[in-house]
């Protein structure tokens, strides 16, 4: 039986792992390679690295650290941040990343999704979305790495999910912004709405604060994976304990 995935997310800024609250006020939590190794050893099912400063500053992820991560860990990992071309994606995949994730560049140039899927296959094309409810409608945000440049997109989240899947996206990471970094639980309502229109794997992001939040998001929103950052970085939850808890709750996990 396919296991639900637990995915620590490492926000990377200037080569260090950082953590902010509601996308602001970042502080350094550690070295990329050391944290990657630690989480892999603890039983993380996958890792996501977001270079959160990439889109705002027009930079692209440094393939150098992608290669350093690929050398030490034996679980899959995804790299995100300012990937705007097939060539930039290729550099990261050939450095050893298993998937690439695009967010703002997909909104700016939706054809990039098609180009990446045709070149590398849908299985390694992830589309990340930052979304919150405004006036009763879930809407997307862009450039969320920089509070001074964050924009609300015209696009609504649910129709964007459908469009990116048609264009070839193989996985969706939905970051629910109102919940991000505040550890009050995942945005179950939004994730249920997303699940209804999402025929590819769906990863919940934003809001994990306790082990029962993971149980709730798997049972109520039927997501394929749950992503979290601060609860793991600050050792609020240990991954081995979480896996035991979820297994006892009747959720299929990899021991």
């Amino acid at each position: 039986m396919l296991a639900r995935r637990i995915i620590p997310c490492l926000d990377v800024r200037d080569g260090k792992v950082v953590k902010g609250v509601r996308f602001k006020d970042h502080e350094i939590v550690g070295d990329i390679v050391e944290l990657a190794r630690l989480y892999a050893e603890q039983g993380a099912d996958e890792l996501v690295f977001y270079d959160i400063s990439a889109s705002p500053e027009g930079r692209e992820v440094e393939p150098l650290w992608v290669g350093r991560v690929a050398q030490v860990i034996d679980i899959p990992f995804c790299v995100a941040g300012g990937i705007r071309s097939v060539a930039a994606a290729r550099a990261r995949l050939h450095a050893g990343a298993d998937k690439i994730s695009i967010n703002t560049p997909a909104l700016e140039n939706p054809n990039l999704i098609n180009a990446l899927a045709e070149e590398f296959g849908s299985q390694c094309v992830v589309v990340g979305m930052d979304s919150r409810k405004i006036g009763g409608i879930y809407r997307l945000h862009q450039y969320t790495g920089d509070p001074d440049r964050t924009l609300t997109s015209e696009r609504d989240t649910l129709s964007w999910i459908k469009e990116v899947i048609e264009r070839g996206a193989g996985e969706i990471v939905l970051n629910c912004m109102d919940q991000d970094g505040v550890r009050q639980g995942y945005d179950i309502e939004q994730l249920i709405a997303a699940r209804e229109v999402c025929s590819v794997p769906l990863i919940a992001s934003g809001g994990a604060g306790a082990m029962d939040h993971f149980e709730a998001v798997f049972k109520k929103a039927n997501v394929d994976g749950a992503l979290a950052a601060s609860v793991f970085h600050r050792s609020v939850i240990s991954i081995p304990d979480l896996k035991i808890y979820l297994a006892q709750s009747g959720i299929e996990v990899r021991p």
């Binding site: 396919l2 296991a3 995935r5 299985q123 193989g170 999402c198 590819v200 794997p201 769906l202 394929d224």
Partner: peptide
């Protein structure tokens, strides 16, 4: 009914 396409993740 097993889940989304593609098959992605840890299976037995």
């Amino acid at each position: 009914d097993a889940g989304p396409w593609p098959h992605m993740g840890w299976n037995t």
